[in-house]
Simulated scan of single mutants.
Amino acid sequence: MLDWSSSLQGLAGGVLIGLSAVWLMAALGRIAGISGILSALVLERPKGDTAWRLTFLLGLISGPLLLTALGAFGNVAGQPGAVIGAPAGGVGLMLVAGLLVGVGTGIGSGCTSGHGVCGLSRLSPRSLAATVTFLATGIVTVFVVRHLLGGGA
């Protein structure tokens, strides 16, 4: 049975992500790619270009925390009172996974938000290739983990 509440929350989240990407492009002429925003802030420290980057990243962190604090949104674990499920692995595995994601964004010259949301909307062929690669890699990974290695839910 379809859970309309979750579907509507997903739709609302998608609309807000799209609006934020459009706003950033219209207001500042910038692409809302999180890896690019963060790496430029940390590695390049551009003069006069720091405030919007910090604000964007602060919103990324504080928005979900605020919604969770309100208690009406965010239960993706399927358990009463839970916000998210238990991690599939320990802290070490999460650190390695995060490192691999970082390496992947460097190799792919961007992340899913930059390519998938902003690049596709600009009809960028490079972003289409990157997004297809992201999706195909995810599909293959789930297949291997669940069906060949016998793990997962």
Rank of each mutant, 00 (worst) to 15 (best):
V76D: 04
R146E: 15
D3C: 02
T131D: 09
T68S: 13
G106V: 06
T50K: 14
I61T: 11
S39P: 02
S124H: 02
G48Y: 03
G92Q: 03
G90M: 10
G89C: 02
V142K: 07
L57M: 12
A97C: 10
L120G: 04
A21E: 00
A72D: 10
I84F: 11
S113F: 04
K47N: 06
V142L: 09
G29I: 02
A86H: 09
G108C: 11
V76R: 07
F56M: 14
T133R: 01
V117C: 06
D49W: 08
T68N: 11
A77S: 14
T68I: 15
S113R: 01
L24D: 07
G89P: 00
V142F: 10
G81L: 03
A32K: 00
D49V: 00
F134K: 04
S35K: 02
L95P: 08
G92N: 01
G119R: 09
N75P: 05
T137L: 15
W23S: 12
S113V: 11
Q79S: 06
V76A: 07
T131K: 06
G18C: 09
S121K: 00
T133W: 08
T50Y: 07
G102H: 08
R122P: 02
V144N: 10
G102I: 04
S6P: 01
A129I: 13
L135Y: 09
L38C: 06
H115K: 01
P64D: 08
R30H: 04
T133V: 12
G63M: 11
F56A: 13
L57C: 01
L19P: 05
T68M: 13
G150C: 09
V140C: 04
L128P: 02
I17F: 01
G63E: 01
G13V: 10
